[in-house]
Design a protein around this nucleic acid. Sequence first.
DNA 1: CCTCTGTCACAAAACGTTTAACTTACCAAT
DNA 2: ATTGGTAAGTTAAACGTTTTGTGACAGAGG
Lengths: 340, 340
Amino acid sequence: MILIASTIKDVARYTGLSIATISKFINGGSVKEVNRQRIEEAIRALDFKVNEMARGLKTNKTATIGVLIPSLENIFVTSIVSKVESLLLDYGYSTIVCDYRTDRELENQKFDFLMSKSVDGIILVPHAIDANKIKEALDRDIPVILIDRAMKGVECDVVLVDNLNAAYNAVEHLFMKGHRRVGIICGPQDIYTAQERLKGYIRVHEDYQLEIDQDLIRYGDYEIQSGMTLMNYFLEMKNPPTAVFVTNYEMTLGAVMALNSSNVSVPDQLSLIGFDNIQLANVIKPRLSIVVQPMQQIGEYAANLLLRRMKGDKGGFPAMLRLKTEIVEGESVKVINSYV
Amino acid sequence: MILIASTIKDVARYTGLSIATISKFINGGSVKEVNRQRIEEAIRALDFKVNEMARGLKTNKTATIGVLIPSLENIFVTSIVSKVESLLLDYGYSTIVCDYRTDRELENQKFDFLMSKSVDGIILVPHAIDANKIKEALDRDIPVILIDRAMKGVECDVVLVDNLNAAYNAVEHLFMKGHRRVGIICGPQDIYTAQERLKGYIRVHEDYQLEIDQDLIRYGDYEIQSGMTLMNYFLEMKNPPTAVFVTNYEMTLGAVMALNSSNVSVPDQLSLIGFDNIQLANVIKPRLSIVVQPMQQIGEYAANLLLRRMKGDKGGFPAMLRLKTEIVEGESVKVINSYV
DNA sequence: CCTCTGTCACAAAACGTTTAACTTACCAAT
DNA sequence: ATTGGTAAGTTAAACGTTTTGTGACAGAGG
């Protein structure tokens, strides 16, 4: 047996009222008490549900928002998505999630796809998307919220963490324990977050009036393999750093793998500060000190900002919400010399 | 400036053809070569995109499928979702992802939500959902594919791994290396996968004619904390096992954390086989031997089956696709006695 | 008793497609 | 020359809502 959904017409017939009245009721308009009851009964009896397609056709709203992310297998990102999804659901929005597997082509393509689905808003963790696409969405009155990375070439709301000071604090933390030669494994030079983190590294050196050994700055690609390679590079230096700061999760994994297959002991011979995944940090021996980002909060801010924009509130556009990271101390940093 | 999207009418006007012809063309019907060119030009010039809402209203299809999962922060699940999403996108479907945070209430609620969005199909990693809900979806001709767990009380397609033999093989692997006292950290007794894994543990003991010490069977809740607690239980036994098999990822994390804070060395004093996350396995020292599930494949099978069902092909319903796991050897299992 | 005001209900048009039924044009076969 | 068939195009209805403009009615104020 195949069920067939009932429509507003059926409800109208059942109650003897007109379609318009039913529609009014559904959308919170006021109807006579006696009618209210009959409508409610009819809806229950007929198991009526609004047809969102028909509604969407009229209102030009889909009650759907699009989320476009680099990867669904990145816990940093999915935590945020999870929060966003649940918050928006409370307001009746459903969330279409697309990942673009860090592929430039796919990123543009899936953005178009979301637009073609006429979502009411977009949350995007951008990588290499064409700024014009975002402009176009904005012109079509589809709000876009960027997460984690600001973009040049377009005015757009963005929620991110203070990456500069995240790095600043992590390296300062090492300074406080007496380290002076600190290596950094950076992300790609063309990625905003990576640039910011490197800036923090440089600025803290300036503030402490320490000269920077350029050999201690290494650029990776945010993937496991490069974390491994670059950590090995540090291990084989004639004059190696006493501590290394790794600037994202995947490269932290790689760095730990490199250390495991060497016979260098952490933190005795080398101290380490990683990034992003607290679960990982706790399961490694010795427990890893890491920089954690407030993922819940990022999701929350992004979702709320998007809701405001979708309501038409353009206040403070373009907004930049900049959240703070935190250092969770493990046992991977040696105290050479305590200054506190 | 706010752009306003052009419609099929505009294209008709631009080309001088009728709406119906344009529609036919869009949907792959054949038109005269000269008209084809004009239509294509018009579409380009007007930047025409089909309005999916209007189309959906007519066809009663949304080109949208729903995915309902226990958590977006579970890499096992998100890997599958990622695969599903990309496969279905190739066929023009978009994917609405909902997680229910292992909450029974939320699970039922979000299932309803997906139904109210009139998705064309649903992929569900079920936990405690009401079987009637699934029946109702099926009655409405919305195909549902279960992942990872079969369900009683309703006939439904399901894609899962052979959990029984996964456990069988893992424990047999330990037997082959000479272990005879093997502890198991199981999942909740009311969860299908957990039951299956325990059955495998029991069956392999039967096949090897080894008696089972009930103290070596411990039930957790698939969360980190219980992995920790139960591993500590094993460590404190008077007559501890020589090896432990942990049956999911989170509890594996917990078990490793427990081992790290004890002074028991792996694999010398205790051998360990974990579950599910190969990245984790490689980053732990010593590298962990684990059971890995073919997540890509699961996603692939589920997506393809769903596509078939959505096309109306009911062949072999209800299908049960049962995939095989694999053991990835690390260095966490000691050879007491090699039989090979 | 008349008019004004406010509340509620209604009819009908519109949103942008698809599709069934129909027309036309052309060509081949009788 | 007539018939039949096929391919391409057209017209108009339908999908299930929202919304605009009206009208009906009741009670208040004069």
